[in-house]
Amino acid sequence: MINAYPLFIEGVQVIIVLLGAPLMVGWVRALKCWFQGRASAGLFQPYRDLSKLLIKDVVLAENASWIFRFAPYAVFGSTLMAGAIIPIISVDLPLAATADIIALVALFTIARVFTALAGMDIGTAFGGMGSSREMMVASLAEPAMLMSVFTVSLVSHSTSLSHMAHTIIEGSLMLRPSLAFALLAFILIAIAETGRIPVDNPATHLELTMIHEAMVLEYSGRHLALIEWAGMMKLLLFTALGISLFFPWGIAGADKAAMMPVALASLVIKVALAGLFIVLIETRLAKMRIFRVTEFLGSAFLLATLGMLSYFILE
């Protein structure tokens, strides 16, 4: 009989990703309201939004093709697949070895490409605008992302996520300048990739400022629910990715069932802190002009490169 424990952990993780993502978004929204002196709709509002969207009928544009109807499933599928791979509560996931960090980035790219294609399918100016901008941000973020990730993998001699997390947990607690630079770069990229202020504003429907919302403007009903849900998962997954790359302490090691409560508790605390961090940024900063994003991501790239250079020079 095969050992059921890793499979159980995998199942728990998928459920956490599916159900925890709306909670994290609810937490961020509630905290933001509190910071800005507004009354919040509560932690659980994203669940109510999703369930309402899932019940509603779908309204499709006359000329929507099969791409438009397939895209939400592809986006959801690839994002959930990524969620099954990142070591969130344990480094001993059976699926962790199926894809390393490079393949993980590619899984997010699948979601992005299908969203961008769907944006162009209806043939409105908004959709094309969103697709063009999203792909611009992505094409600048991806090199920076890989440089940042490469720096971490230089330290751990691996691109396998669970192995990278493992190396940092096992290693001595020392301040590595290369990791500090890589972390800074990663934060900038994560902001751009998940479409948060100052790169994109998830709450806007103003033509001049939309990126992600412009692409999915024509969606409704369960299609919209899937896309929104995938977006929420992406926020949680980027947070989890940052945690497992830079702050993996607390993630359970191999076959240690006793560690699980600690792992869950540390996950909740870290995600809550990350949410607080996002809210602090979003409250303090205004959204920047679209062509300033170049400089923003350019500096992320430079930081990541500095991290790599400092690894070779200092370590």
């Binding site: 699926l95 393949a103 192995h163």
Partner: peptide, 18 residues
């Protein structure tokens, strides 16, 4: 431990979820 990728599982995983 350096790097691994399983194309069949990724393909199957995404297809099953979809």
């Amino acid at each position: 431990e350096r790097a691994s990728y399983s194309a069949p599982i990724v393909f199957l995983g995404i297809s099953v979820v979809i």
